[in-house]
């Protein structure tokens, strides 16, 4: 069982089987299946089942590939409320950005980093932009 960060805590993961996009598209009960997105794939078919999909994984083949940030933000903007998990080669210094885009779970390649990574989630306490965890941009909140 992999250990992951989920909702700000380290937990053992007992998640469902995960399909790649092609398998997921061919699956008859896809609305209830978990799927992993790779950069360059379209998330349009997921939007149809956005209320039912339990888990979406987004893979980062390298931490420099920022496409996954947009997937997350778009899914959340369109109303996805299930688990959204980053997997692959992102680094802990990206956790603030990732969580603000809507990721609530992080599966690191190297599980020994988890404790330290948790700290990075708290790097910032204030932001200018609207984000998944703060739908109002700062200019609408300024006292």
């Amino acid at each position: 069982m992999p250990r992951i960060i989920k909702n700000g805590a380290i937990v053992e993961e007992h998640g469902p089987e995960v399909l790649d996009l092609e398998q997921w598209l061919q699956s008859e009960d896809r609305a209830r299946r978990a799927v992993v997105l790779e950069p360059g794939e379209t998330l349009a078919p997921l939007l149809e089942h956005i209320d039912d999909i339990p888990l979406v994984l987004v893979n980062f083949p390298t931490f420099m590939d920022g496409r996954g940030f947009s997937y997350a933000r778009e899914l959340r903007e369109r109303g996805y409320q299930g688990e959204l998990r980053a997997v692959g080669h992102f680094i802990r210094d990206q956790l603030t950005y990732l969580s603000r885009c809507g990721f609530d779970a992080f599966q690191f390649e190297d599980e020994s980093e988890l404790e330290d990574a948790l700290e990075s989630l708290g790097d910032f306490s204030e932001f200018y932009q609207a984000s998944a965890d703060q739908p109002q941009p700062l200019f609408r909140r300024r006292a």
Binding site: F63, M64, D65, G66, F69, S70, R73, Q94, T96, Y97, L98, R100, C101, F124, F127, Y128, Q129, S131, P137, L138, F139
Partner: peptide
């Protein structure tokens, strides 16, 4: 400037 500063989605552009 404020919008682009530490924008979470656009820190790892092409």
């Amino acid at each position: 400037r404020q919008w682009s500063t530490l924008h979470p989605e656009f820190a790892f552009l092409p």
